[in-house]
Amino acid sequence: MKNMKGEFALKKVFSVLLGTVLAATLISGCGGGQQTPSSTQTSSASHQEAQAPSTSDDLKTLLAKAKDIKTISYTMVMTGDGKELAKSKMWMKGQKVKMEMSDGAMKGTFYVDSAKKVAYTYIPEQNTAMKMDMAQFENKKSKTPLDYGEQLEADETKYSVIGDEDLRGEPCKVVEAKDKDAVSKLWISKKLGMPIRVESKNNGTLNTIDFIDFETADIPDSQFELPAGVQIVDMNDLMKGMPKAEN
């Protein structure tokens, strides 16, 4: 009975972690009808067309600052209409990612090693980690600050530079990006060459991702390793023993 309760609690936290990862994907990929502040609309349409080549070049130069970054850590805060929905701490180095999250009194850490195609959800209170096949999450991972720059550079027709603005005391270039029917607004730090805020509007709700507390110093490999003595539960083995749902 004790083991069953432990597995249930573990699954609950895993659901919270996965839900937040999916939420980040939805926030960063959805939106529409986002209005641009009047302070960034001082140029006429003809003037913007005339300046398009230079602003595009300026943005490319700005985004190039992030290309040499090998390791990075930051805090990601997601809000909906000004209400905080989730907060997590991220570490990235090569193909390894670590994400710390909390759900009230329960805390969890998500480890991903893309090279080994494996992911773990670690629950400190239970000294247990759930091992999962990376294939389950390859299309569901959240975007990182570096991903946005790569997408902007991949297709210049999907974005436009709409002005310059300070955010949290940091000079930024403001960009509007379009993807199919979605429209997002990004504040690209002139110092980092990465977005420090992404906004989109979805079903009347203003969703925001803030990236704060950036660090680019080297991260020890030990940061991406499970603590010693952790009990690992293989989700593939666990799922094999569960009854199939009936239609």
Rank of each mutant, 00 (worst) to 15 (best):
G6E: 10
K11R: 12
L17Q: 15
V21Y: 09
A23T: 11
A23D: 10
L26S: 13
I27V: 11
C30N: 01
T36I: 15
Q41K: 12
T55G: 05
L59D: 12
L62P: 04
L63A: 01
K65A: 01
I69K: 08
I69W: 11
S73H: 01
T75M: 06
M76W: 00
L85Y: 11
A86P: 13
G94H: 03
G94W: 00
K98G: 01
M101V: 04
D103I: 01
K107R: 14
K107N: 14
F110G: 05
A115S: 06
Y120H: 04
I123E: 02
Q126F: 00
T128S: 04
A129M: 06
K131E: 15
K131S: 05
Q136M: 05
K140H: 08
K140M: 14
K141V: 03
S142L: 02
G149M: 03
D155F: 13
D155V: 04
S160Q: 09
S160T: 10
G163L: 14
E165I: 07
L167D: 02
G169N: 05
E170Y: 12
P171Y: 07
C172K: 03
C172Y: 05
V175N: 06
D181G: 09
A182R: 03
V183T: 08
L186H: 02
K190H: 10
L192R: 06
G193L: 01
T205Y: 04
I209C: 00
F211A: 06
D213K: 15
T216R: 06
A217R: 11
D218P: 12
F224D: 04
F224K: 03
L226M: 04
P227S: 07
A228Q: 10
V230D: 12
D234K: 14
D237S: 15
L238H: 07
K240L: 13
K240I: 07
G241I: 01
K244W: 04
E246P: 14
N247T: 02
